[in-house]
Design a protein around this nucleic acid. Structure first.
Lengths: 120, 120
DNA sequence: TCAATCACGCACTTTCAGGTAACCACGAAC
DNA sequence: GTTCGTGGTTACCTGAAAGTGCGTGATTGA
């Protein structure tokens, strides 16, 4: 357990990196940054996610102290997900990546086409 | 093909996100940001990566125009990997995440322990 | 009265990330 | 003449990740 080196596979900073290097975490955290949301709202917001993966990822994020789950004990159920301060700081960094992807995906597409055409 | 929305699963911005949401890309790109490196140097720098995954990830990054592979045609082989300008801009954003992981992994560890103890 | 909402849990299946190991070409050094 | 270093490729295999689909139980809207 050294002093935080992601390049060291035995350091648990690596575990942290693998947690945040998940495509769903990269969408959920920035989504919650805008506003706290319920399960169904996240399901609608994040296209292509399954109920299972949403629950699973939220549980992991909650477990690591990034997301706060608040269950008003009502019928029908009403559960809201919020970012913790720690989660908010990570959400900021992740939303930068989201915006990078939105800005540059065409460049990636073009590069891929060029590469694949050369290597016929 | 809409105007760049990572929340839309049919938009290729999502593909871009999945490419950069790889734990190996998250280590390789920041590593190359410091200085151009050879295959063996990356292998040493990035603990726990196998030759196969290194090659595979480098190929994908090259394919998407993020990494430039320059092969001096010598014997024994000498190949160097550099970041393209696009790759450098992504590497900056990713190294922010690396540093986030290195700073906060202890907080995550603690949160996990707390969570797991409650739910006995 | 029928369907849908909400927030899941569970079982089953499929996909794929990733590991291991063997192989390659070439030149230099021993 | 055979062993090493370099930068890979290829085939094979497995375990974990992720998707599919169904159940739940009270409640509200059409």
């Amino acid at each position: 357990m050294k002093s935080g080196d992601v390049y060291d596979p035995t350091c648990s900073a690596r575990d942290a990196l693998e947690l945040i290097a998940s495509k769903w975490a990269m969408l959920i955290l920035p989504a919650l940054r805008e506003e706290p949301m319920r399960n169904s709202a996240l399901l609608r917001k994040i296209g292509g996610i399954s109920q299972k993966m949403l629950t699973q990822t939220l549980r992991e994020l909650e477990r690591n102290g990034l997301v706060i789950r608040s269950d008003k004990q009502t019928r029908p159920p009403h559960v809201e997900y919020t970012l913790s301060p720690l989660g908010a700081s990570l959400g900021d960094a992740l939303s930068v990546l989201d915006r990078w992807a939105e800005r540059h995906f065409t460049a990636l597409d073009e590069a891929r086409e060029r590469f694949d055409n050369e290597r016929v």
